[in-house]
Amino acid sequence: MRIDVRRTGGFAGLTTQWAVDVAQPELGDVWMPLIDSCPWDDVPDDANEPDRYVYSISAGEREVTLPEHHLTGPWRALVDRTRDAARTGGLGEAGALGETAGGFEAAGSGPQPPVGRDDDVDDDVLEPDRPVTDPSRWATEPGQRLFPPPADGPVEDGR
């Protein structure tokens, strides 16, 4: 199962994404209890606080968008686990798809749903315009390779 966390907004307006692909038995043993404990169908519908982050989280078919101040409890645990797994190259059998920074969903990149919808995150807009993973600064220790690369192309492995 692919688990994605996409963080947008913040004062700087930068986008960062962490993604992992988790297989059995780790998926069932470690990840599914956490994923199932998140209230996917009970998402608060209130405005974000100025300059705070927005988190778009998906696990398989389930997707949600949360303002940062609601990233608590199991949501926080899921995001932290995904980020750590993506950065370290895998927890157990979790395949780290790495961390990417920069970019956004460009204007005119296909049909756009109404602004503000919480659902229906398209896979094709998750990849930033300039996917970059710099092992020395963001994702992994120097010399480490991200494994496996995403299905739609190799991950850059450094400068």
């Binding site: 947008t8 307006g13 986008t15 927005v54 956004f104 969903e105 204007a107 756009q112 602004v115 503000g116």
Partner: peptide, 15 residues
């Protein structure tokens, strides 16, 4: 001409 349509960042408020 460069207006950005996006669902991230509260609809691109910082863009």
């Amino acid at each position: 001409a460069g207006y950005v349509d996006t669902r991230g960042d509260n609809g691109g408020v910082h863009l």
